[in-house]
């Protein structure tokens, strides 16, 4: 208000929080954990017709180390749950999780012995997407919701969290 007019067109005043979260929210890199049917709609969301690139999320990295949004797309079984958790642990902070589809959110139509009834039992979920499978538009909306959420976060929010102790693998003591 008035300050900008004094500095001319080259300056803008804002808070650090706003700048960082603005940058963060427009470059959300998803980790596409395509497990079953929803993966096909996730692929469709990336195709030219729906084009997830409009939201800055076209960089689908298949390595968790380079991602900040985990999209769990599909039915998670008990056998798979450990893998999902491991992938979540490998992602650097700050990170967000979309639970895509009825199966990931609540077990969906698979009320059976091998299916986990909702992934929120072992990973924190930010956005649940309804549908079996959700249409690509629905996933895009979820990405926008994540962006809204990121827009409200503060830079300091993620500094105090203790590091998770990862299990040591390939350690041999003979």
């Amino acid at each position: 208000m008035g300050l900008e007019s004094k500095f001319g067109q080259s300056f803008i005043t804002t808070t650090i929080d706003a700048v960082v979260s603005w940058a963060r929210k427009n470059s959300v890199w998803p980790m596409p954990l395509g497990i079953s049917c929803c993966a096909i709609e996730m692929m469709a969301a990336a195709d030219p017709r729906f084009d997830i690139a409009r939201f800055g999320s076209e960089v689908m990295r298949f390595t968790p180390r380079q991602c900040d949004l985990l999209i769990v797309a599909g039915t998670v079984t008990y056998k798979m749950a450990k893998v999902v958790r491991k992938i979540y642990d490998q992602m650097p902070d700050p990170k967000w999780v979309i639970s895509m589809g009825a199966c990931a959110s609540s077990g969906g139509m698979f009320r059976s012995y091998s299916v986990v009834q909702g992934i929120d039992q072992f990973v924190p979920v930010d956005v649940y997407v309804a549908g079996c499978p959700p249409r690509p538009e629905n996933l895009l909306y979820a990405v926008m919701e994540i962006q809204k959420k990121i827009g409200k976060t503060s830079v300091l929010e993620f500094t105090d969290q203790p590091l998770i102790e990862l299990p040591v693998i390939n350690e041999r003591k003979n």
Partner: peptide, 11 residues
């Protein structure tokens, strides 16, 4: 296999 075993036959 079995990471997506959803128990169809039991269902």
């Amino acid at each position: 296999l079995g990471y997506l075993h959803r128990g169809y036959e039991k269902i």
